[in-house]
Structures are given as structure tokens and as C-alpha cells.
């Protein structure tokens, strides 16, 4: 195999493993690499954005719209109400929900903390009961929600695991009984309140939980 062959092989391997291709000169294989990308994108189920991504980007945009003056000087306007349940919005996009429903979702008042109440919801099993014994924090991703379930004061509870600052996914630290933000020096305790730190942050929304035989279920947006 020539050097160019090995480069193109590595490019193909990366795409099939769903990784970023390595940095390397493309030379004459630029078009072949693009054919590879096009073909890979045609595999079943490949080209739909994940609800978690749609949700996180919505939060980033909202943050930018709130804090960057360029947004208000430009013509594009904000909605009269802040976006409410962004995870629900992500679910609506994924499910292709009609415009009327989206308007309802978008005009819900912004929540700070509170409990997530999806307007179309389903109970989804996210952990075995044995995964949430005291001292453990179990991460899950379901219905567009990134969350954690754990036991606190003898009760099973759920919290959003998306930092209320810029939407980074929080990392559980079971030993310290907290969720730590990977982006900034901030953490949340298991009641969802931000620990004192460099930022003043809204609390994490709670997620409803229930036990169904030996599974822990959470109430999340239903999407197909």
C-alpha cells in the first residue's frame, strides 16, 4: 500500500468508527474523502442530530443571545418569552412535532430549578435499583434529557445533569456527593443547588423518578 492508500484507509476507518478523521494531507484524495463522508452519512439512522446535541446548542445560542450585544443590534429578534423546557424542544424537533405545539413549548416561562414536566412524557427505565444504592450516582440519557439518579435521605431522586451556566454535562463525584462542571470551577450538591463558587448559578431542575420492580424509571419527554 502506498502512503496515500494508508492515509485514505485511516480516513475511512475513522468515519466508520464515527470519529474525527486524523490530520493529514489530502492531496489527490480530497474528492475520495468526501465521497467517503457522503456514503457514511447515508447509513441508516446516521444523519439525525441527537436530542442532547440539539438541546445543548439551544442553550449555547440562548446564552449568546442574552449576553452578546451583537444579537440585539442585528435585526433578528428574541421571542417575547424565554425558551422554557429546552429538552422538550429538542424532543419536538426530533419527533417532528407541529409548529403549533412548538409555540406552546417555546412560550412556557423559563424555569430555574423546579421539576421537569414534559408536555408529552413517558416513564423510561434508566437504572437498576442496585445502581442507585446510597453512595452511588447513576448517569442517564433519555428522551433528550441528560440526568442522574441517586438516593438521598432514603429516597430515589433525579436531577438534570446539564450545568445551568453554559450547558456542559456535569460529572458525578459520588464520594463528595456532588456533580462537578467540567467547563468551569463549579459544582452542584445533590439537592440541585449550586455550591458557592466563582459563578452564581440557577439550581438544577429535578426529574421525577419512580421504582418499577427492580428498575428506576424517570419521567422524560416522549419522542420516537
Amino acid at each position: 500500500m502506498s502512503k496515500a492508500d494508508r492515509r485514505l484507509t485511516r480516513f475511512v476507518q475513522a468515519l466508520i468508527a464515527n470519529r474525527r478523521p486524523p490530520r493529514s494531507p489530502a492531496d489527490d484524495d480530497s474528492a475520495a474523502m468526501q465521497v467517503a463522508a457522503r456514503l457514511r452519512a447515508a447509513h441508516p439512522g446516521g444523519s439525525t442530530p441527537s436530542p442532547a446535541f440539539v438541546d445543548t446548542l439551544a442553550r449555547q445560542l440562548r446564552e449568546a443571545a442574552d449576553h452578546e450585544p451583537g444579537w440585539t443590534e442585528a435585526g433578528i429578534r428574541r421571542r417575547r418569552f424565554l425558551v422554557g423546557g429546552l429538552a422538550t424542544v429538542a424532543a419536538s424537533v426530533a419527533a417532528g412535532v407541529g409548529v403549533e405545539r412548538l409555540h406552546e413549548v417555546l412560550t412556557e416561562p423559563a424555569s430555574s430549578g423546579g421539576t421537569i414536566q414534559p408536555y408529552i412524557s413517558a416513564w423510561v427505565a434508566v437504572a437498576k435499583l442496585t445502581d442507585v444504592t446510597p453512595g452511588k450516582i447513576k448517569q442517564f440519557s433519555a428522551g433528550g434529557i441528560q440526568g442522574v439518579v441517586f438516593t438521598l435521605d432514603g429516597q430515589i431522586r433525579g436531577l438534570s445533569a446539564v450545568c445551568t451556566h453554559q450547558g456542559c454535562t456535569l460529572v458525578p463525584q459520588p464520594a463528595q456527593r456532588k456533580l462537578v462542571c467540567p467547563c468551569h470551577p463549579m459544582s452542584f450538591n445533590l439537592t440541585g443547588t449550586a455550591n458557592p463558587g466563582d459563578y452564581r448559578l440557577n439550581p438544577l431542575p429535578a426529574i421525577q423518578t419512580r421504582v418499577n420492580t427492580d428498575s428506576v424509571e424517570v419521567l422524560v419527554p416522549a419522542w420516537t
Binding site: L39, A41, T48, R78
Partner: peptide, 24 residues
């Protein structure tokens, strides 16, 4: 043209367009 509507409408098709050019 509030940005939320634009985002809602375009995020999935734009992602599809970009994915077909990146393949990952």
C-alpha cells in the same frame, strides 16, 4: 424570524447537510 424559530426549523436539516459532508 426570532432565532428560536429559525433554530427549530433549520437545526435538523442543517445538521444533515453538514453530516453528509463530514461523515462523523
Amino acid at each position: 424570524n426570532d432565532w428560536e424559530s429559525v433554530y427549530q426549523e433549520h437545526v435538523a436539516p442543517l445538521y444533515r447537510f453538514v453530516y453528509s459532508r463530514t461523515g462523523n
